[in-house]
Structure formats: structure tokens, C-alpha cells
Design a binder for these strands. Sequence first.
DNA 1: TCATTAAATTGTT
DNA 2: AACAATTTAATGA
Length: 224
Amino acid sequence: MTTLAEALRSAIWAQVLAPEELARVQSETIEREIPAGGYACREGEPVNHWIGVIEGLVKLSVVSAEGKAATLAGVPTGGWFGEGSLLRTEPRRYDAVALRDSRIAFMPRATFTRLLDTNIGFNRFLLNQLNERLGQFIGMVAHERLLDPDARVARSLADLFNTFLYPGVTEKLTISQEEIGYLSGVSRQRVNQALRALEDAGLLRTEYGGVTVLDPAALRSYGA
DNA sequence: TCATTAAATTGTT
DNA sequence: AACAATTTAATGA
């Protein structure tokens, strides 16, 4: 099992840190275990940390006034989120639910702010991350009308496969069909059906406990 | 190494 | 939602 220190050292944004700075970040960042179904953070809470997934899978979601839930993104091992709320100094705008037992890193606001103020490379990373996220959301909005479950499943998987945001994610995604269902807002049965359609189309291969992505680009544009 | 069992995941209705 | 089938992981002979 990777330790918190190891996970921080291998994070993409940590590659631009000097050894002393990395050590300082490691000493200031804490880890918490979140059981499946638990919250890493909740909407409306004051934002005091930048949050990273050391190990596991987290779903970012909002609930509308009518109580309808919408998934914004899935964050797998190696992903970090919450920089938007930190930058704007506003309450958390979404829930982060662990879809499986997960180990979550919490970097204090002061640490995050220091990196932002002192490290150009860290700023460049954040710019890229925000840009990738924006691209995801644009794609989401553009395809919102197409409620075709096959396409939704395809998009969820393609987003998870984002190699910049989640460098640890390889073509073999370790994710159950049930978890895909939570991310894409589709029943597990329908996920099963969609996966077979996508497999028939040659975009991926289903396996026990996961799927292997064969054609990421086609997956992203499926149904468009 | 092999057999047994429990747990997780998948396939189907 | 429920059920059966399949795969994996863990256990002990």
C-alpha cells in the first residue's frame, strides 16, 4: 500500500517542487480514511483543504433544490480537487462521496496558498488542471441532451481515463459496473448493457472488476 | 499445490 | 430489486 508521503511525492504537481518544499508539504498534509459511502467533504462546508485521492474512487456531485442528484466528475487514485473553491474563498459547492473505501489526503489552505505564491510550476499545473476540467464540463453540457445511457457511460469512462488529470490511470480501469453506474447516473443493469454495446463497437473490453479502454478518442465522442 | 469457502462482481429477469 | 452464475481471494490441508 502506498503511503501518504509516497503518494504526495509521485503526484504530478509535486514534480516541480524542491526537495525541502516537498518535505514541508508532506509534513503539513494529513490523511483520512473514508469508508465507501462516506463523505470526503460536503456542500456548504467552509473550504480549508485541497483534497487528493491517495487510493480509491470519489464522486463529486450536487443535489438540486428538487433533490435531484447530478454527478460532476469521478476522481480516481491520483486525482486532486477543490482548488476552485480554495481560490475563490467560498463554501464548498459540491459533495465528495467515496464510492469505495478510500484514503484521502487533505492539504491545508496555508500550504496550498504558499505553493501558489511561490512556485510557478505549481501554477502551471493548476492552470492545466482547471483547463482539463473545463473541457470535461463543456463536453458534459454539449452532450447533456443526449440522454442515451450508452453515451453517458462512454463519457464517464472517457473522463476517468484523462491521462493528465489522473496519470496513475492506465488503459485498464479497475472499476466495477456498479461504480460506473454511480458515476454515470445509470442503473447497474443498464451499465452492463452499455458496456457490451461499447465492447461490440470495439471501444473497450470488459473484464471481471474492470474495463480496458481500447479507443479513448472514440469513447469520448461516442454518440455525438 | 489443491480443495473449500466466502465475498465480490457479473449476467439475467 | 432479486436471483443465479462466475471470478477472485483467503484459508487450511
